[in-house]
Amino acid sequence: MIQINNLHKSFGKLDVLRGLELTIDSGKTVAILGPNGSGKTTMIKSILGLVIPQKGEILVNGNSVKNNWTYREEISYLPQIARFPENLKVKELIKMVQDLRKTLSDPEPLISLFGLEKFLDKSLRTLSGGTRQKVNVVLAFMFDSPIIIMDEPTVGLDPIAMIKLKKLIKEEQAKGKTILITTHIMSVVEELVEEIIYILEGKIYFRKSLAELNGTVKKIGLEGVIAEILEEV
């Protein structure tokens, strides 16, 4: 379970998060939507302890994330932009991340799923954006963590890899994991997600389950629904 109370974060004069409140129950799959710069990534990074908030509290499975690092054992994170040490080989990178986390991992099926065998001995510098993202997916999914956080996971992936990723996510859902996704691609949301959280200007603007929206979604599509809700105000 992830619990966020009154989270504030500003970068200089720019207030990104303004009193964000959020609870995500275990075993739920939730999409975080919102326009560019609304604070989605900042929120996710706060949960991971990458960004240090000025005010507020975040609990992951009951443990405060402040000055704590052990809780990250329970989280797999797929960052938005894959940044790797460029002169390492793919194989070495995977080994290194395995070495850093004590939990069991199984990268082999994922490597063959995404056809990465032939890249294992290449250095990360030489890989294309899509291939890097696949490596990124392997790094996140090779651990059996109860919480998975994905920040725009489909960026740079080709349609086939995207279908594979969706299948992977569905398998993880079946295992009862808590999953957080930010994305701008509505088909991903419709296919995978139970609940939508819409962030606007650093606050939760609305939170609705997909079932609740189902009738209208069929008529005008998910984009249409969100546009309608935003116009209501």
Binding site: L48, G49, L50, W69, T70, Y71, R72, E73, Y77, P79, R83, F84, P85, V97, L100, R101, K102
Partner: peptide, 8 residues
């Protein structure tokens, strides 16, 4: 940046 997201 890779390391700070890991349990380290």
């Amino acid at each position: 940046e890779l390391l700070v997201a890991q349990p380290v």
